[in-house]
Design a protein around this nucleic acid. Sequence first.
DNA 1: TCAATGGTTCGAAGATTTTCAAACCATCGA
DNA 2: TCGATGGTTTGAAAATCTTCGAACCATTGA
Lengths: 105, 105
Amino acid sequence: MSSSPDLPHPERSEISLTGVLFALSDPERLAIARQLVDGPLDMAECHLSNPNVPKSTKSHLMKVLRTSGVVRNEANGRARRLSLRREDLDAKFPGLLDAVLSAET
Amino acid sequence: MSSSPDLPHPERSEISLTGVLFALSDPERLAIARQLVDGPLDMAECHLSNPNVPKSTKSHLMKVLRTSGVVRNEANGRARRLSLRREDLDAKFPGLLDAVLSAET
DNA sequence: TCAATGGTTCGAAGATTTTCAAACCATCGA
DNA sequence: TCGATGGTTTGAAAATCTTCGAACCATTGA
């Protein structure tokens, strides 16, 4: 049965604008968020620009995205399914996610 | 004549998305940006939530906003005129500024 | 049942940010 | 010309973030 640890996620009401902006202000984290626009991905399918970074670092990047409310991280077998919290973010900060993710870097 | 030191500003082409997001990811800096939506303000008219912070700290907050390209800081007599770089930001990152500044905190 | 897989967590070291006092600088008014 | 005003810069200390190895944990396949 399931599952790997259930990680804490902020409620929608707990998501702060500055927290979201901070999470997305790192190029690597922004790139991760962008990989999720077309739907959820298992963590292993989420690639960093530097493929050599250790898994603990990658996990930490995910933690910042999760605890800020940008990404949901759910157990999926022994993998982790990552998804953008688009509904929550669109509801709280209309237009923000679209603007950030569609902006040219 | 003029004027107080001419501070460096990034060209529009040098403004990075992550830099802008970072600058706005601090509550105090975000609050400053929001005070500029209705037009330029002299620095003395820009109030921090904590009115006791020393001027050097305030100056540093302004520097982060300036060097990231969010705000323009021009000499104005012995004051400093602050303005949002709305044209540049709207051109580079359509919808971003509106989304950030109109979001509820 | 055991080993490999795909992750998280912990702790420490390093890097970056933040904060502040002090020194400095140019402008304005008297 | 001089003092007050409105700011910037510098340097150092404190706080926060990032990175990474090591230990850990649950799931899957053999």
